[in-house]
């Protein structure tokens, strides 16, 4: 762990893709800090760069087209971006584990769950296969799979979607990771099953002290689970705050629009939903200024020309920082109004 108590520090990360049409700046200057036991959420729409941020941290970028332009990912004081593939293999599935949206495509359909779990456990821990199987069974039990001794020898297709996601979580936890990155883990699931999985993740964070980075497009899921939330738009974090503050007083016009555009199950909506007009920008041709300019209801002249930097709005007594990247909250921008 680094001196400031962060287990993970992502600093000014830029991940670009070379395509036939030009360079796509998928992640463009993202900084995230994660403390032990903390649950942070990254929320954003398709193409906002949230999954690519996670893939970069895990060293899982597709070869060839992707390149890391700049930045560092400090884990335990070491920069993972400089680690060799062999070192990364130790980290992945060991100290940092990841679960994905679709558990069916992340499990090998031809191998028994036991085979797949033992492989991971033996790779990361100094145990024999027999002990590894016992660990696998214990992990399955921990995530609430009934009859784990029998189930461990089943094939992935024998499980329902919710059970498969539990198996994925069990697999991720089998090596006692310090960090769990969950990329839309409940998006493919029904709401009643989603509620089970969210409760499970919450309990695991509380019992095991695992830090979780939860990536989702669903504000409701993020609201229920996370202590702190980063809102991403076009490759950048436009606002970051503790969960309660973000929903109570969202500052960035995009965050405001996002929250207002979600219908709520607990309220009768009598008026129209507030929608954000237009489309997200083309990442190939990002504007010079703020990427949200075209869709923003509060835009000013300066927003078109100059990129707003992320500024600290306030720091709570507990040390929670509320940051926003918008000219509305900048003295320089204010003077242009």
């Amino acid at each position: 762990m680094s001196s400031n108590g962060n287990i993970l520090e992502v600093n000014n990360l830029r991940t670009y893709f070379n395509t036939d049409d030009g360079v796509v700046k998928a992640v463009d200057g993202v900084s995230i800090t994660l403390k032990p036991g903390e649950l942070i959420g990254i929320v954003g729409e398709s193409g906002s760069g949230k999954s690519i941020t996670a893939m970069t941290i895990m060293g899982l970028l597709p070869g060839g087209t992707a390149r890391i332009e700049s930045g560092e990912v400090l884990f335990d004081g070491k920069d993972l971006l400089k680690a060799t593939e062999k070192e990364m293999q130790k980290v992945r599935g060991g100290d940092i584990a990841m679960i994905f949206q679709d558990p069916m495509t992340s499990l090998n359909p031809f191998l028994r769950i036991s085979t797949q779990m033992i492989e991971t456990i033996v790779l990361h821990q100094n145990v024999r296969r027999k002990e590894a199987k016992a660990i696998a069974i214990k992990s399955l039990e921990m995530v609430g799979i009934p009859d784990p001794v029998k189930v461990v020898d089943s094939y992935p297709h024998q499980f329902s979607g919710g059970m498969r996601q539990r198996v994925m979580i069990a697999m991720a936890l089998s090596c006692n990771p310090k960090i769990l990155i969950a990329d839309e883990p409940t998006t493919a699931l029904d709401v009643t099953i989603q509620a089970q999985i969210i409760d499970l993740l919450k309990a695991l964070a509380a019992d095991l002290g695992t830090s979780i980075i939860m990536i989702s497009h669903d504000l409701g899921v993020i609201a229920g689970l996370c202590d702190r939330i980063c809102v991403m738009y076009a490759g950048k974090i436009v606002e970051e705050s503790c969960a309660v503050d973000l929903f109570k007083s969202p500052h960035h016009p995009y965050t405001q629009g996002l929250i207002a555009s979600v219908p709520r199950v607990d309220m009768d909506v009598t008026e129209r939903l507030i929608s954000i007009e237009g489309q997200p920008p083309n990442l190939l041709h990002l504007p010079k200024g703020c990427a949200f300019y075209d869709r923003c209801s509060k835009r000013m002249d300066i927003c078109q020309d100059k990129l707003p930097e992320s500024k600290v709005l306030k720091v709570s007594e507990g040390g929670d920082v509320h940051r926003v990247a918008c000219w509305l909250y900048d003295e320089e921008g204010g003077s242009h109004e």
């Binding site: 709401v191 989603q194 969960a243 109570k248 709520r264 199950v265």
Partner: peptide, 12 residues
């Protein structure tokens, strides 16, 4: 209905 997450941390 109780399983649907509400986008409000305090209520949620």
């Amino acid at each position: 209905l109780s399983a649907v997450p509400v986008p409000d941390p305090e209520i949620e």
